[in-house]
Design a protein around this nucleic acid. Structure first.
Length: 622
RNA sequence: GUCCCCGUAGCUCAAUGGAUAGAGCAACAGCCUUCUAAGCUGUGGGCUGCGCGUUCGAUUCGCGCCGGGGACACCA
């Protein structure tokens, strides 16, 4: 038997030889199959006068059971008090014969399993090849506008793996959401003022002088700026230059009372807009931004809007005043302002303004949240921030809710688990076990260069490939873990290029592309010819491809990219099994050869789409 | 003390309340004169921290313990 499926671009529908027409405007073949199957179960239940609301339609763990499985008999059994196995049998007997189903079966406790005809599943290949980079996307999020704050590194530090987890998850989520039709805006907060920045300025002033002589003043720096080092003159990356000076400034601050006084004076003078202090401030921040943006560029990070703290930090107090006038907050005896959240939200109360009338972090956040609301009018606002901020976030959301800035339920704290260093626990500069992002990528790059075949690539090409593979390895190692899980970060496994890793998937994708490049015959990618019989390798790959879209949705809804990672790994394994067991281009049987070529093209497309939504690049060769 | 997160193979991690709990690494045994071996095939490895409950069915939900981490009013 040989079935030919023809794709008509005029009607955008797949005509399946047995006669059913599946519309393609919205759905792919298998999406339609799922819907029709669901309807048929519904109808059969109705015919028997049985109710099973919310029955599932999932993929059995063991593929020998079929492609889809429902628990309808269990749910119905519960209502009727009948054994589910019986009801499953009854459902099966009354199940209509569907053109796209080859087998309906009942299994042990009461599952009803369905097998879809190979030729129908195969027509999904045409959808993949037609939709190309759009395959797997959906329009569930159409009309939604979401705002996500991610990766807000303080400008007194070089970015480390804590920031990495934030960035990598944030960017992947944004791309996955966009793939689901959501309009996503990305922003961050630049905490560019306050005592920490003053310490950095102090550190620069005292410890970056080319020839140290006594205590340097801002005046002396202002008039003799050439006497101070630059990252270039020190041969350092700008962010590391800043990081180093901040540590020195902080140390001096805590050990030396005179220095501490001077640092506090910097804060006061900065707030008074002292010209020279602002010049120094802008000078040191320039280095921070330069360094951090290099790192972020390597990661292909994106912000649509950067909020600078100095532009709005004073506005928060107005909200506190308003809250007091409206009786939402109350003033304590010493003048500090307290929230009233315990009774209304069941959240511990917090101080909104210090007794001396100065602002706190949360004070500024009230103003910032309103700015965000006014600027983007997002249906949901997300903050991708570590779990230790959980309480502070909820307090802020609730206060915003009371002030009418934003609804409590529309504010979501997306927390992510801690990054511990395997075997060493918490990462801290005090323990000297901070892992910087650039160092990590460079290390991965070195390892990858070592294992590359030098004769195959020019130096530039090898360099470019190694960068993509290194960044892919590092990103994937973080993304494959569930968002909320605490991670034991291990450098070695994060730069691994074997097994469940980014490079493994990149390699598989490259493998499909290189095969297609070698193609010397004409192959019609708009037509499917099913071979007389399929091997287990083709079957299991074929019946897995179409699940990509479902996986994207799963990640969208759970706010966790790791489902996509797991899927891509499994897909790659299935393709590699086929590749190793059978010849693709050299297969003598034409039908089989062409079918495997289509499988190759489809797999390559999905791997590419999957890596793209994970914000991971695919090299041309590797 | 209160609240939140976590506990699954030696290690790192998966598993919309479903079927025999799965991967990767590590260990062991194999596969390159054929499309890229960053690959493939096979073997061993588990009272899912403990107990009780809900359910036809619990790694998943509820309660109570044990263990790890974090947060708890004028830090950011």
């Amino acid at each position: 038997m040989c079935l030919v499926l023809q794709l008509s671009f005029l009607t955008f529908s797949v005509r399946i030889s047995v006669g059913i027409i599946i519309p393609m405007e919205e759905n792919t073949t298998m999406q339609s199959v799922r819907e029709k199957l669901s309807e048929a179960i519904e109808k059969t239940l109705g015919k028997l006068g049985i109710e099973a609301p919310g029955f599932s339609l999932e993929h059995p763990q063991d593929e020998t059971y079929g492609d889809f499985s429902t628990n309808a008999a269990f749910l119905a059994g519960k209502k009727l008090g009948k054994p589910p196995l019986h009801l499953a049998e009854e459902l099966k007997e009354n199940f209509p014969s569907l053109d796209f189903i080859s087998d309906v079966s009942v299994a042990k406790p009461g599952f009803l399993n369905f097998r879809v005809k190979s030729e129908v599943v195969a027509s999904e290949l045409l959808d993949i090849l037609r939709l190309q980079e759009k395959y797997g996307s959906n329009s569930k999020g159409k009309g939604k506008k979401w705002l996500l704050e991610h990766t807000s590194p303080n400008p007194n530090k070089a970015m480390h793996i804590g920031h990495l987890r934030n960035n990598v998850i944030g960017m992947a989520l944004a791309k996955i959401w966009e793939f689901s039709g959501i309009k996503v805006t990305l922003d961050c907060i630049d905490n560019n003022r306050g005592i920490a920045i003053a310490k950095l300025m102090w550190g620069f002033l005292q410890f970056a002088r080319k020839t140290p002589a006594g205590t340097a003043t801002i005046d002396s720096w202002f008039s003799h700026q050439d006497d101070w080092h630059t990252p270039e003159s020190e041969g350092m990356r700008p962010d590391r230059f800043v990081d180093d000076l901040y540590v020195k400034g902080e140390k001096d601050f805590s050990e030396n009372e005179e220095s501490a006084k001077a640092v506090r004076k910097i804060v006061v003078d900065w707030e008074a807009h002292d010209k020279k202090v602002w010049a120094l401030w802008e000078h040191v921040l320039k280095y921070s931004y330069e360094g951090q943006s290099r790192t972020l560029a390597r990661l292909m990070s994106r912000w649509d809007k950067v909020w600078h703290e100095h532009e709005h930090y004073e506005k928060g107090k107005e909200f506190v005043e308003r809250g007091l006038r409206e009786g939402i907050f109350r003033k304590l005896e010493d003048g500090a302002v307290l929230t009233d959240l315990e009774s209304k939200y069941g959240i511990a109360d917090t101080i909104l303004m210090k007794s001396d009338g100065t602002a706190l972090y949360i004070t500024q956040d009230l103003a910032l949240t309103e700015l965000k609301h006014d600027a983007f009018d997002a249906g949901k606002m997300f903050w991708l921030i570590g779990p230790e901020q959980s309480l502070a976030m909820r307090q802020m959301f609730a206060a915003c809710d009371q002030l009418g800035i934003n609804r409590y339920d529309d504010c979501i704290h997306l927390s992510y688990g801690r990054m511990n260093i395997k075997g060493q626990g918490k990462m801290s500069s005090r323990l000297g076990n901070v892992i910087y992002i650039d160092d990590l990528i460079d290390l991965a790059k070195e390892e990858i260069m070592k294992r590359m075949d030098d004769s195959q690539f020019s130096k530039e090409e090898a360099e470019s490939i190694a960068e993509k593979v290194a960044v892919g390895a590092v990103k994937y190692s973080i993304l494959k873990v569930g968002r909320t899980m605490n991670m034991e970060f291990d450098i070695e496994s994060s730069i691994a290029f074997e097994g469940n890793s980014g490079p493994y998937i990149q390699y598989t994708c490259v493998r499909t592309q290189s095969l297609l490049k070698k193609l010397e015959e004409e192959v019609d990618f708009k037509k499917i010819v099913i071979p007389d019989s399929l091997n287990i390798e083709e079957e299991s790959l074929l019946r897995y491809l179409y699940r990509f879209g479902e996986t994207v949705l799963e990640s969208t809804e759970s706010y966790s990219p790791h489902f996509v990672c797991t899927y891509l790994h499994e897909l790659s394994k299935r393709y590699n099994a086929l590749y190793n067991e059978h010849m693709i281009l050299r297969e003598p049987d034409e039908k089989m050869r062409h079918f495997r070529i289509l499988l190759t093209a489809a797999t390559g497309q999905i791997l590419r789409n999957g890596l793209t939504v994970l914000n991971i690049e695919v090299p041309e060769r590797m």
